[in-house]
Amino acid sequence: MSFNVSYLIECLLSGVKYIHVSLILAFVPLTVGTIFGTLIALTRIFKVRFAGKFFSIFIPIYNGIPGIVTLFIYNLIYLLFFKPTVTGVIWVALFTFSLGQATHLSESIRGAFLAIPKGQYEACYSAGLTTFQTLRRIIIPQVIPVILPAFTNMTVGAIKNSSIVFAIGVTEVLNGATIPCGTTYSYLEGYVAAAIIYWILNIIAENLLRLAEKRSAKYRSGGKS
């Protein structure tokens, strides 16, 4: 078996056409997961009745299930009740990834909140600030730089893990890069092309987030750059 460079380029061009799908499958769940993960973390930190206890049990259980298993489960539920469409399958993937990101990020976010000394909450309350004002003005600006390293890893993982949707028929970078392989049945070039595209996407995302980490570091040093 020989490696054909021109064929690799063809696979690269084919995979590039579906970068937007992979980015949607990565960043929409990250956004949704960050929002709901923060809410979940806060319910546990402030010990909200019922919700806090529920998530303290649900999160460890759900995080113990591989993402591809939950993807298959939700896809089978979808096929059981609805007529399959391309848009519908993408929504299944978005739901699966969003829930997974929310449960994983909630743990990292909770840890970041717990890293802030309790004395800061007490000082804010004594100054007359409400809990919402305390979180918005004092706590969250300090949590952001703490959570960014973990968020960087989650982003890189989200871009890579978007490839598992090939299992339910969604065409993204991996499937797109291997489309030309259907005529020759030589898939090595297609997989290498997909690996190159994912690597470039992750390098860009990681560098941007590392820059954000440096910029947010002033909150950890009392405003000193």
Results as ranks from 00 to 15, higher is better:
residue 100 G to V: 00
residue 9 I to P: 05
residue 186 S to V: 09
residue 21 V to Y: 02
residue 5 V to P: 02
residue 103 T to M: 14
residue 198 Y to I: 05
residue 120 Q to G: 12
residue 47 K to D: 13
residue 161 N to F: 09
residue 78 Y to C: 03
residue 188 L to D: 10
residue 97 F to L: 03
residue 85 T to G: 07
residue 64 G to R: 07
residue 98 S to D: 10
residue 177 A to N: 01
residue 43 T to A: 03
residue 134 T to K: 05
residue 191 Y to R: 05
residue 54 F to G: 09
residue 187 Y to N: 03
residue 76 L to R: 07
residue 124 C to R: 01
residue 51 A to E: 09
residue 1 M to K: 06
residue 14 S to V: 07
residue 130 T to S: 15
residue 56 S to L: 08
residue 189 E to V: 01
residue 140 I to M: 12
residue 13 L to R: 10
residue 149 P to D: 01
residue 15 G to F: 01
residue 18 Y to Q: 04
residue 57 I to K: 11
residue 202 N to S: 12
residue 179 I to Y: 01
residue 34 T to G: 05
residue 85 T to E: 10
residue 191 Y to Q: 08
residue 11 C to N: 15
residue 107 E to G: 00
residue 116 I to D: 03
residue 206 E to V: 02
residue 224 K to S: 13
residue 172 E to K: 09
residue 58 F to R: 12
residue 118 K to R: 12
residue 164 I to Y: 09
residue 135 L to R: 02
residue 47 K to Q: 15
residue 185 Y to R: 07
residue 93 A to R: 00
residue 71 L to A: 12
residue 30 L to K: 02
residue 73 I to Y: 13
residue 165 V to D: 11
residue 204 I to M: 03
residue 195 A to R: 08
residue 96 T to E: 10
residue 195 A to C: 13
residue 192 V to P: 01
residue 145 P to M: 14
residue 161 N to M: 10
residue 36 F to I: 12
residue 37 G to E: 08
residue 51 A to H: 07
residue 184 T to A: 08
residue 37 G to H: 09
residue 80 L to K: 15
residue 72 F to R: 03
residue 10 E to R: 13
residue 158 A to N: 01
residue 23 L to Q: 05
residue 94 L to F: 09
residue 59 I to T: 10
residue 25 L to Y: 04
residue 55 F to E: 08
residue 14 S to L: 06
residue 64 G to I: 09
residue 171 T to C: 03
residue 36 F to R: 06
